[in-house]
Structure formats: structure tokens, C-alpha cells
Amino acid sequence: MNAADKKRVLREMLFARRFEERCYEAYVERKIGGFLHLYPGQEACAIGVMEAARPGHDYVITGYRDHIHAIKCGTDPKAVMAELFARETGCSKGRGGSMHIFDVEHRFMGGYALVGGPFPLAVGMAKAIQMKGGDEISICFLGDAANNQGTFHESLNMAAVWNLPVLFICENNLYGIGTATHRSTAVTDQYKRACSYGITSNQTDGQDIDQVYAAAKVAVDFVRSGQGPYFLELMTYRYRGHSMSDSGAYRTKDEVEEWGKRDPIIILRDRLIAAGEITLEDYQAMDKEIFAAIENEIIPYAENSPEPKVEELEKYVLAENDPYVKGGVR
């Protein structure tokens, strides 16, 4: 990343932070319902990895903490917010919700809410890429706790056996909901578990976007050059509870404060200030612009969009007028 790229990703990370904080407020105001899993603390992961990949070209799939992954792939934040507000203009037409953001046009292939569910889907997309001969790669973002599902082992095995172009990103935030990793997992260094399947893997700091980018660049190039799957573990931390219904009481105040000192946005901001690329005033102005965009454009768009029509409740269950249902066309 050159200086201009770094300034841009700083803005993207700050936008992600403010977007998610605004979701929190909207949830408290009861404008967003259901489950809501927020991303603050982990911004350098999705944004750093996708900076090294090709957003909108590579296929991306993830779990339910998915808003920022979609936005980084190119999804309009207005369509994401409208989805959270359950509107027809939402990226999943109000049928998906926070955990099921989809934007196929930008190759964001969805957020899925069964922990570990996306592993085989990601490997399947890689199989399709391999068959079709494209230069895309399949990127699967999941958390550390997903690696205790059978799908992790089954999918990594198949990815390795068939040498498929899939990059597994493990955002290790140290907890599976409220259970600390060491209490649920025999081998807590997740990258070591990929070695069981002969998959090249690495572990790096997920709070410093320069390190995320460097490690992701190696991983993306490896997969794109046809050398097979790769597993990259990013050590990170989520500031809030697992979801809005989780206060995070299982963590000590000291631990939360310690991780707060390694905030991905502050790390990059201070580095750019020290390098003379930006001033603190520039940063504050950027923050104000982001706040204004969210308040003046994104929230009103979501709030003023129509809800889906009840008459269209059963739309999208099955294909419409598929000729083979009646025995095909001659």
C-alpha cells in the first residue's frame, strides 16, 4: 500500500467503525431487530485482506458478522443499512437481515448463520473457479470458533486433496460467543490446525493493517498462482459482546483495555501522522464527514425505504416459471 492507499483504508476502517456504532444505536432505538453482530475492533481484518485481494472480482463468503465484508467488496452501505432496517431496498430485499447480507453483483456471496457453514460453500466456489478456469479466488472469512465444527476439517481436507483456489481467513478474536478459545480448543493456535491437512498457513497481528496486508498479499498470491489453498490466522479482538444480547461480562476490564490500546484505526492513524501524511485535524475532519454521510444519507435512505410487500411473502422460495417443472420445453 502506498501513502494514498493507506489514507483510503484509514477512512474505510473509520467508516466501518462509525457505521457499526450507528447500527448499535439504531438497534437500541429498536429500528433494527433480530440479531446484530458488530465488527468494532476487527476492522483491519476484512479491510486489510480484501485490500490485498480483488474486491468485486474474488468471491467472498463469511459468517453472520458480515456488514463490513460486504461493504469492502463494493456493496453500497445504504443497501446494507436498508437491509438491517428490513426494507425492500436492502441488499437482500429485507428477507435476509444482518446475518444474511448478500450482493452477488459484487461477488459477496453471503453471510451465513450456522457456525462453520460457509467452509464447504467456499470450497465449492473454488471448485467452480477451477472448472471454469478463471483467475478469481474464493475467500472464506470465519472466526476461530468455527474451526471446532466438522465442516472445518472436512472442507480443508477436500480443498487440499483437490488443490482448490480457496483462502481461509481465520479472524481469531479469542472467544466463541462467551467461551474463551483455550477453554474449548485443544490447539489454540488455529494456523497449526491447518497443517493437519498439509495446507500452508500463517499467523499474524490482526490489529495492524500493514501486517494484515503483507500477510494477505502472500496468501492471495499463493492461492491465485494455483498453488492450492492457504490458511491465514489474524489475531484480533471484538470490542463489543458477541451480539447485542451479549454484554461481554466474561471478559475482564483489563483485557478489554489492553486490546483497546492496540486499536487498528489508531495504529494506522498515528503511523500516518508520524510519517507526516496526515494531521490529527485531517483525521477529525474525516470523522466528521463520515458522521455526516451516515446521518444525512445512509440512515434517511434506510428509514424512508418501503418495507417488502406482504403480497410478495412467498416470492424467492422457488424459481418462477421454471419450464422443467412442467417437463421442459421442446
Binding site: 460453500l121 465449492g124 466456489m125 471448485k127
Partner: peptide
Amino acid sequence: RIIDTPISENSFTGLGIGASFLGV
């Protein structure tokens, strides 16, 4: 195209589903 899978029913079914997302 004729794929002998490992004995991993959930994940090879999921693999087929993921491949179908891209037109397979």
C-alpha cells in the same frame, strides 16, 4: 467431473451447493 468424495457427507454436499452458486 466424476468426483470420488471423502466420507464427509455434510461438506461434500455443501461443496456441491457452493459450486452451484457459480453455475456448476
